[in-house]
């Protein structure tokens, strides 16, 4: 009896760890393979291998020397950073109002904000296109900063509202008794307490803006103004049939590695940020 029980337990353990290994391999392998490919040289790329066989930086040199990839990288950094800073700036005060002050229509307003953040962006594309051309910012980074507000702002407001709601009410009341106005409460009491939340929210919004494709594809038209996702999508070789896989993989690794590192550093905070508002029993 004891022996069969142990066997069953062993099978369960083996199955469990098989599942664990499977999850890890499936998650990591595509990225691993992209890195592997990016270090291959010339026709080596077309020889399938599961383990590193050669090491060459040729593709990386190509990415930075050919075309406008460095410029695209700068564009992406600039657009994502400015978008996030603007969104956070507007969202912090709005989140205070939504989480700390009771007024009629607050619940409705929160639903509208959530709805906008989940908006199908294509639904506003033609209207935005007209507006962006009218503002004279078509094919500039400002067009992207402007349009990205549609998803970064509601997102940051929503997440910061849920974070701010969890700050202890007595601290705010102590500040009120001390004579603090709402503005002082936000800037001198809440903000210092919320910086982890601000970093998390900012990071998530940054990733969103960094990865955005539809607006970037539509509102920029020249190599110099594109962001990296568009640049990678449109990377092409000498002829239509010659896809420069090595260069594409090198570019992919370059734009992904910083994100992966950031995400791994902040992983706990990111999980809490993702679940904020979503999961609350």
């Amino acid at each position: 009896m004891g022996a069969t029980f142990d066997l069953w337990k062993l099978i369960k353990t083996v199955l469990f760890y098989t599942a664990v290994v499977f999850i890890v391999v499936v998650s990591v392998f595509p990225f691993y393979y992209a890195i592997l490919t990016s270090f291959k040289q010339g026709t080596d790329i077309f020889r399938i291998s599961y383990w590193p066989t050669s090491f060459s930086l040729e593709n990386y040199q190509a990415v930075f020397s050919q075309g406008s990839f460095p410029r695209n990288l700068l564009n992406s950094v600039f657009v994502a950073s400015v978008t996030v800073i603007l969104a956070l700036f507007l969202a912090v005060t709005a989140a205070f109002a939504l989480s700390r002050v009771r007024f009629r229509g607050r619940g409705f307003l929160l639903m509208v904000i959530l709805a906008v953040s989940m908006f199908p962006q294509i639904a506003v594309l033609s209207g935005l296109f007209e507006l962006i051309r009218a503002l004279g910012i078509y094919n500039t980074p400002w067009a992207l900063i402007f349009s990205y507000t549609i998803f970064t702002l509601p997102f940051t407001v929503w997440v910061l509202t849920t974070f701010m709601r969890d700050l202890p009410i007595e601290i705010e009341e102590a500040a009120i008794v001390d004579g603090a106005t709402p503005w002082v409460i936000i800037t001198r009491v809440f903000m210092p307490l919320m910086w982890p939340a601000l970093v998390t929210t900012g990071l998530l919004a940054f990733i969103g803006a960094w990865n955005e494709f539809l607006f970037a594809l539509t509102f920029t038209s020249s190599n110099d103004t594109r962001t990296v996702p568009v640049a990678i999508a449109l990377l092409s070789g000498g002829s239509q049939y010659e896809v420069p896989w090595g260069i594409i993989m090198a570019a992919s690794v370059i734009v992904t590695v910083p994100l992966v590192i950031l995400v791994l550093i902040f992983q706990r905070k990111i999980v809490s940020g993702l679940t904020a508002g979503g999961v609350k029993g």
Binding site: A174, V177, D178, L193
Partner: peptide
């Protein structure tokens, strides 16, 4: 002036800053 059940001290300020906060405002 009010003393709260949970103390409600400002966690990011030193004791001095906590006590001086109201006067600085």
């Amino acid at each position: 002036a009010m003393v709260f059940q949970s103390y409600a001290l400002y966690p990011h300020m030193t004791v001095y800053e906590n006590m001086a906060f109201g006067l600085t405002l």
